[in-house]
């Protein structure tokens, strides 16, 4: 990929960002290389999947419309995963992403919201997402709650509120300007708008994590929060911003899901938290924090969606799909571990 050894903090940092941010301390260049190897190994997995798909279903799989399909299906969870990658990189976790997507998509599709048309739906989805992220962030950064617990509580309450708002009903969207964005007529040069948003969020996420002070602070907080604090980073504020960012990504994803499914339902975003965490981890982001890779996360999402795609095209049962998904998570992590160990010598 177009990924230089940039996953670890770069050398030309201002003094405040200088502390050894990664777990590896002195081995920073090596770690940067490993991040690269991780992405390469995941690319290998993806290439193998493409090969399998191409051999088993040459007509249906190797097809422009299938590429559009895979990227579209990846776009919603992909945006959530970008936010999740930031949170995990900082040593946190956000279990509430699926519930926030559900709540935002439901709130943005009530009859009252739909009266305000396109802007009303977009505004509500994003603000509900950011609002939930704000609550998460305040509880964790200033309330001293463990991220696991705070976001678990948010998971329960956001899902509950989503159910309360819908009464279990499916809220069908009738605003055409929103619905049209999911239809082929709005594709730009054959690229669905949802995929463009996904690409945009990915690029911005990569730039922010690898090329800005904000990104370096995120890595520093995840590597060693105490060292980061001593170096002058406002750790609490940084954490607040990160959960806000995750909430923002959920809000955007909720809007994308509304476009994709043409409705809002309290069951939306079911188990997104697990999919997003799994994609980030097999991508090479450390669950303990201190290292994160946006490219790896996006590759992780693409691997999962491609697996689903291949299984569906071959008309295999969902039970088999789930078994394969589990096996591939284990295989990807094992491959990465062995490459890292070899690299360490």
């Amino acid at each position: 990929m177009t990924q230089p050894a940039s996953e670890a903090p770069q050398a030309p940092t201002p003094p405040a960002e200088a502390p050894p941010a990664t777990k590896g301390g002195g081995r920073r260049p090596a770690l940067g290389l490993h991040a690269d190897v991780r992405n390469l190994s995941l690319l290998g997995v993806l290439a193998a999947l493409v090969l399998v798909g191409g051999i088993t279903q040459p007509d249906a799989f190797l097809d422009v419309s299938n590429l559009q399909l895979v990227l579209t299906q990846a776009s919603v969870i992909g945006v959530v995963t970008v936010g999740m990658t930031f949170v995990i990189t900082s040593g946190g976790i956000d279990l509430s992403v699926g519930a926030i997507v559900a709540l935002a998509s439901v709130w943005a599709t009530t009859l009252a919201t739909q009266e305000y048309g396109f802007t009303g739906i977009l505004f509500t989805a994003v603000v509900v997402g950011v609002g939930c992220g704000l609550v998460n962030g305040v509880l964790i950064a200033y309330g001293g709650m463990v991220p696991f617990i705070a976001t678990l509580a948010m998971l329960a309450s956001a899902r509950g509120l989503a159910l309360y708002l819908t009464d279990g009903k499916t809220q069908i969207v009738t605003v055409n300007s929103v619905l049209d964005l999911g239809l082929p007529a709005t594709y730009v040069l054959g690229i669905p708008p949802l995929v463009l948003v996904f690409a945009g969020v990915t690029v911005i996420g990569w730039l922010v994590l690898n090329r800005t002070t904000f990104g370096r602070r995120t890595v520093a907080v995840g590597g060693n929060a105490e060292a980061a604090r001593l170096a002058g980073i406002d750790v609490r504020r940084q954490r607040l911003y990160l959960y806000l960012l995750s909430g923002l990504c959920c809000g955007i994803a909720a809007f994308m899901l509304i476009i994709l499914s043409g409705s809002g339902q309290n069951t939306n975003g079911n188990l997104y938290e697990l999919d997003a965490i799994a994609a980030a981890i097999i991508g090479g982001t450390l669950l303990s924090g201190g290292r994160g890779t946006i490219v790896g996360s996006v590759l992780g999402v693409l691997v999962f969606i491609t697996i689903q795609n291949i299984f569906a095209l071959n008309n295999l049962e969902s039970a088999v799909q789930q078994i394969a998904k589990g096996a591939i998570i284990v295989a990807a992590v094992l491959v990465q571990r062995s490459t890292v160990r070899n690299g360490d010598g």
């Binding site: 419309s65 299906q73 994709l260 499914s261 069951t267 939306n268 079911n270 008309n315």
Partner: peptide, 26 residues
């Protein structure tokens, strides 16, 4: 019957599985 896929009684999964079915069965 040329194909069968299982969704999860939700709009989101219905969309995802149907999109794949349509891709598989021209």
């Amino acid at each position: 019957k040329v194909a069968r896929q299982a969704a999860e009684f939700t709009v989101e999964t219905g969309q995802a599985k149907m999109a794949q079915l349509l891709q598989a069965q021209k």
